[in-house]
Structure formats: structure tokens, C-alpha cells
Amino acid sequence: MKVLVAVKRVIDYNVKVRVKADQSGVETANVKMSMNPFDEIGVEEAIRLHEAGKAEEVVAVSLGPQQCQETIRTALAMGADRGIHVKTDDELQPLAVAKLLKAVIEAEQPGLVILGKQAIDDDSNQTGQMVAALLGWPQATFASELDIGDGNARITREVDGGLETVDVQVPCVMTTDLRLNEPRYASLPNIMKAKKKPIDEKTPEDLGVDIAPRLKTLTVTEPPGREAGIKVESVAELVDKLHNDAGVI
């Protein structure tokens, strides 16, 4: 079985993002970029399947500008076998990403496709579900445990009430949640090795996909800030303030 993992290049989770003055988006110039953390979890899971002899090959796919190749290299350094880069400088919204991934998946025929549950930039939480829909495959979202068999996968999902287990036919799409695993760091020798691994380049035109955005972003603004609060000296003062001033207890 082949495993295909989607890896998105996003602003690093530690960066405090700033809204551009012209309200057209957020500042990305000279900002640290990284692999979406949920996709690191996806790559880790795929590599573990490979190491356990359950997957023969791990393919990492990223869509977007030239620099996405760095993100693919990170996946290769972690242990993925090869990469596919769908190159475009145009804005990609989740439905377009899903259509592009569908085209890649139809060509590659993986048994399992792993995406992150959410990209930490657009916070959409859509793409995995959309890919599954377009392929007519089952989906297991927000996964915290995977047990893959021959024709099916048993997946535990993190849901609002606790945990849920589903059994889905393979091939399937899975989206990762935080507790699925702890991703490894790439070792220096593996980073060197990754430089020689192949990355296949394609364009949306090659794949025959219309990527025109469906949603128009009118403005991007800063959220209203909170007014500065006060420090209290004691628990008694805290309770007094909450009771008498704020009236919340």
C-alpha cells in the first residue's frame, strides 16, 4: 500500500501574525514559515506505517508557491520517500486544493491519504473531508488512533463528547488530531539524504483543475483587543472584585 500525505506550508505557529495596514491580508514577508503542525503528525503516522511494514511508499504532496518544496524536503527528511509539488502562485482555497489532490490521488492510487484536520493559517478544517467527498471515499476526521487492515481501517476520532471509533473501507482519507502521535525531528544524515530524494513538479493546468477562488476576501482586520486588566493581591480581593465589581459570581 502507498500512503499519500498532504503537507501545507504555513506561518510558523510561534509567530504572532500581523494584519497588513491595507487590510488585504496578513504580513508574510520575512516571517518564519513551517510545515502545518497537523501535517507533521500526518507524515509521522505515514512513516510509522512504513516502518511497521504496512506501507511500501510514502509520498508527500504540497500545493502552492516554489517555497513549498522546502516543506516537502522536511517531509522527506522525516522519512517520506518522494514528493509531489503542485506549483502555483495563485490563491488556493480548500475546494481547489481538494480538486488538485483528487487529481494527484487518481494518478498515484494510494490506499490511505492523510491530511491535517486543520491548517493553522486559514483554520478551515475542510480539505480532508472535501477530498474524500470528491473521491467517493470514506473519511475519518480528527483521528487519534489508526489501525489499518487489509480492506478496512479502524480509526478512533476525537469528538466533542469524548472519543468515537469508526470502521471505514480502504482506500480512505484520514485527518490527524493532536494526540495521534508525536512527530520526530529529522536527523542531520536524513536531512542530507532528503536532498537526493525526487520531487515531481506539476501545475494545476497539468492536472486540468480550475482553481479559481470561490470566496472573495473583502477585508482582513485586526480583532478588537481586550482592555488591560488589573492584578489583585490576594484571593480574598479577587473574590470581592468578581462578586461586587464584575458581578459574575
Binding site: 473531508q129 467527498a133 476520532r157
Partner: peptide
């Protein structure tokens, strides 16, 4: 929430709409 996030994007994509 995890209820709506699971099926809504799937429905949107089936209908060829954005979410």
C-alpha cells in the same frame, strides 16, 4: 464543532460549493 465540521465540508464539496 466536531459534529458539523465532519459532514459539512463533505456535503459542500459534493455540491461543488465552497464552505
Amino acid at each position: 464543532d466536531t459534529f458539523g465540521k465532519d459532514f459539512m465540508p463533505r456535503a459542500a464539496a459534493l455540491a461543488d460549493m465552497a464552505q
